[in-house]
């Protein structure tokens, strides 16, 4: 909402997007390679994180990084400025990461079964729920970090892609539908199950420590 307000002019006309990259972008579009390198420098870290979270492999993430910026460079002339450069290149990277993830899915992938809560006959929760005490704290326990990394790596590709794009990267359901080709209800259902499974992994971590 805040974003809408900021991008909307007083007459409710089309959004005025102020892109912090606009100057570098204009120069890059005019063929200035140094300006393009400036854009790369601003966005490479975020793209690397997206690819690494999606693919769980540093080598694959480095390749997605290269592929994404080459695609962006080749498509610069077609970039119309109706989105921010950052979100545009982010979308390109999401597509590259997804293609790679899906290709790999065919090759081989060790998936853990999804961890779901257990209920009794009357539909009541039987698991104890741990208190995620320091969930909002600054520093993260190294073992908790590892537990989350493992749980995320064990998610099936269909689940991991929606979880990464929504909960880690902050895309909307509609954007994810466009990128993945899945329906919004299917995306929500996968996201919910991915969250349950990750929640369970964190819960186990706290339960073991208690």
């Amino acid at each position: 909402m805040l974003l809408d307000g900021r991008n909307q002019n007083a007459h409710g006309g089309p959004p005025l997007i102020v892109d912090p990259d606009s100057e570098l972008l204009a120069r890059a579009q005019a063929g200035d390679v140094t300006a393009f390198e400036g854009l790369v420098e601003r966005h490479r870290s975020r793209i690397y994180n997206l690819a690494l979270r999606m693919l769980n492999s540093e080598d694959d993430a480095a390749e997605v990084l290269q592929d994404s910026f080459i695609s962006a460079y080749r498509n610069l002339p077609h970039f119309r400025g109706d989105a921010q450069f950052g979100s545009w290149v982010h979308r390109i990277a999401a597509n590259h990461a997804l293609m790679r993830l899906r290709h790999r899915k065919v090759v081989s992938q060790v998936e853990s079964p999804l961890d779901e809560p257990t209920f009794n006959d009357r539909g009541s929760l039987v698991d104890e729920v741990s208190d995620f005490k320091d969930a909002e704290g600054e520093a993260m326990d190294a073992e908790l970090r590892r537990a989350i990394e493992q749980a995320s790596a064990g998610l099936g590709a269909d689940y991991r892609e929606v979880f990464v794009l929504k909960d880690l990267e902050g895309l909307s359901y509609e954007e994810i539908a466009e990128i993945t080709g899945a329906s919004v209800p299917a995306i929500k259902s996968r996201l919910h199950r991915a969250r349950l499974s990750l929640r369970a992994a964190i819960d186990h971590f706290y339960a073991d420590r208690a």
Binding site: N49, L144, E149, F163
Partner: peptide, 13 residues
């Protein structure tokens, strides 16, 4: 805990 999960995951990953 369900609400806290995405935040924790973002931090961990």
């Amino acid at each position: 805990s369900y609400r806290a999960t995405p935040t924790l995951c973002r931090k961990a990953l």
